[in-house]
Amino acid sequence: MMRRAILTVLGLAIMAQPAWAEIGRIKRSVGATAVERGKAKLTPAPGFQLLPGDTLVTGKNGQMSLTFIDDTRFSVGPNSRISVDDFTYDRTAQSGSFVTRVNRGSLAVVSGQIAKSKPDAMKVRTPTSLLGVRGTRFIVEVSK
């Protein structure tokens, strides 16, 4: 009986976790798209909540749009594989850190509060380079 109660409490804590950790939401998903979370391959729909570590994957005709809780906006083009390796954000202080890895494909970015909070708090990695974002709109393209 006692054990069950503890398990229930633990279960609740685990269930509640994603709500606290939400870092952004999918606004649009067209064609072949997936969000990889650990070993799970999830199908994003508008409102889908993203977590740190998620990888955004699109196929030949795939496209995804999303907005992060710091107001950063992404548009992911076809044939892309993009991971949010690190995302921490303090909503009150409006500061944090944000590292995105563009393994392949294309990504358009309008940066938000994290990029504004201090120089290079937002970084974008490509297979050959590391970029520090200083408040702007840009596109990164990485061919296969």
Binding site: T126, L131, G132, R134, V140
Partner: peptide, 18 residues
């Protein structure tokens, strides 16, 4: 891999550092 830098939607200046 290529970076294309554009003005913000309000036409403001921004920068990206390699």
């Amino acid at each position: 891999p290529t970076l294309t830098l554009l003005p913000t939607e309000e036409g403001k200046q921004g920068a990206v550092a390699v």
